[in-house]
């Protein structure tokens, strides 16, 4: 089970009304390498991974939901008072037609989120390497988003999220070292 704290992991401030940026940020909401994919991937892999790294997957998977909430807040703030005309001009006409101002799990190009973005192979090495790759891809996505954003407040939050990807990647790499090295069960001779 989870306990919920009614605050964001890191503050989200938006300085200018810019619905076009929301269109790009949604990539980290419902995109292949986004926070939803990350959270679901890690929490699902927990059941079949060696015991000593289950806790890590729980912690990181949980934190990804905190990141998802930050992205949602950014997208919401950037679009909340946009008129249909402004949405149209920002390239969000397609989104508006289907969802009004509601958020939805799709990527920047409008493709709906799908479970085929994630994998649980059951092989601990394959799964952890996928997790490392996912963190690097998310880090790269944050870089491209920062490159397209000139909102200094928003970029602070995006930089925080990018840094967390680096830390998570490091922890997954340590998890690989742990399961590479140890034999907690019976030895085979």
């Amino acid at each position: 089970m989870w306990l919920y704290e009614k605050k964001l992991q890191y503050p989200v401030r938006v300085s200018v009304c810019n619905p076009r940026l929301a269109k790009f940020l949604i990539e980290q909401y419902g995109g292949a390498d986004g926070e939803l994919s990350a959270a679901l991937r890690y929490l699902n892999q927990r059941y079949t991974i060696p015991d000593k790294v289950i806790g890590l997957l729980t912690d990181i998977g949980t934190e990804e939901f905190a990141h998802l909430e930050m992205i949602a807040t950014m997208v919401y703030k950037l679009t909340k008072d946009a008129t249909p005309e402004e949405m149209k001009q920002a390239g969000l006409g397609d989104h508006y037609a289907n969802h009004d101002g509601a958020l939805f799990y799709h990527d920047a190009a409008g493709n709906n989120w799908t479970a085929s973005y994630i994998q649980a192979k059951g092989d601990p090495i394959a799964d952890l390497y996928e997790d490392i790759a996912a963190e690097e891809k998310a880090r790269a996505t944050y870089q491209w988003l920062i490159n397209m954003s000139d909102d200094p407040f928003l970029n602070e939050s995006l930089s925080f999220l990018r840094e967390r990807e680096i830390v998570h990647s490091q922890r997954f790499r340590e998890a690989v070292e742990l399961i590479k090295d140890s034999n907690t069960g019976k030895k085979i001779f």
Binding site: K180, S182, G185, I188
Partner: peptide, 11 residues
């Protein structure tokens, strides 16, 4: 480092 090609654990 235990470099054996197969490891095990007890769930």
């Amino acid at each position: 480092m235990d470099t054996s090609f197969r490891k095990s654990f007890e769930p």
